[in-house]
């Protein structure tokens, strides 16, 4: 993934000011910085949820600036998995269908999608909660469902926006372990967080943001 001189303006506000960043396959990168420094905006650019005012974003060699809305949707569907602070699950669907949905959008048959979704829920330790609706799940369980959904289409890049921000410490630990495990089996990770412990546990590189710019970058020794 590569960001080249990305600038993003909202009216007179400059959210990103010439950010350049590169993440290699298999890397786990944490982005930290104070509130409003542009971390989430940068994540949205990478996910194709928003477009830069200047500069370019490419993922897996694909220049997102060349894609129209449908192209971006297909890009997100096939290349990106996203995990949000507040889970963003569909309240109307039980856990299993929330996960299967991502594959079904690509045209995979329901039975196949459910099979893979069940495997993922099983791997994440919540297969027993597959028929529960989000409102009946704990915060940690919801985030695991969200992770399973993000992994459903085997994305090249997993983006996590404050994935432990809404969780208690135990659930947060579980999610950190999960992300670490994923990276260790080769999943590329980009994590935006306020939590230094999360960054230390899961990331191999730390990028520091301030006022819409990259102000520091260093390798991390993963905490045990």
């Amino acid at each position: 993934m590569r960001l080249d001189g990305v600038r993003k303006e909202y009216g007179e506000t400059v959210a990103l000011d010439g950010v350049s960043l590169e993440i290699r396959a298999g890397e786990a990168v944490a982005v930290m910085g104070p509130s409003g420094c542009g971390k989430s905006t940068m994540l949205n650019m990478v996910a194709g949820l928003d477009r830069p005012t200047e500069g370019s974003v490419s993922v897996n060699g694909e220049d997102l600036g060349r894609l129209d809305e449908t192209g971006l949707a297909l890009f997100r569907r096939h290349r990106i998995g996203m995990i949000f602070q507040f889970f963003n699950l569909l309240d109307d669907l039980p856990a299993l269908d929330n996960v299967a949905l991502a594959a079904q959008l690509t045209g995979v048959r329901a039975s196949q999608a459910r099979k893979r979704a069940l495997e993922l829920l099983d791997e994440l330790g919540i297969a027993g909660r597959r028929d529960m609706y989000p409102s009946a799940l704990s915060g940690g369980e919801r985030q695991r469902v969200a992770v399973a959904r993000a992994l459903m289409n085997r994305p090249a890049l997993l983006l996590a926006d404050e994935p432990t921000g809404a969780l208690d410490s135990v659930a947060g630990e579980q999610v950190m372990d999960l992300l670490l495990d994923l990276n260790q089996i080769g999943q590329t990770l980009l994590i935006v967080t306020h939590d230094p412990q999360l960054a230390a546990r899961c990331a191999s590189r730390l990028v520091e943001f301030a006022d819409g710019r990259v102000v520091g970058e260093r390798s991390l020794e993963r905490a045990a």
Binding site: A47, E69, T70, R76, M82, N88, D92, A102, L105
Partner: peptide, 16 residues
Amino acid sequence: RRDLGMLKSIGMTPRQ
């Protein structure tokens, strides 16, 4: 709105 945003974030196209 939130559900629609989420569905789009996981790859639902505008037409869908």
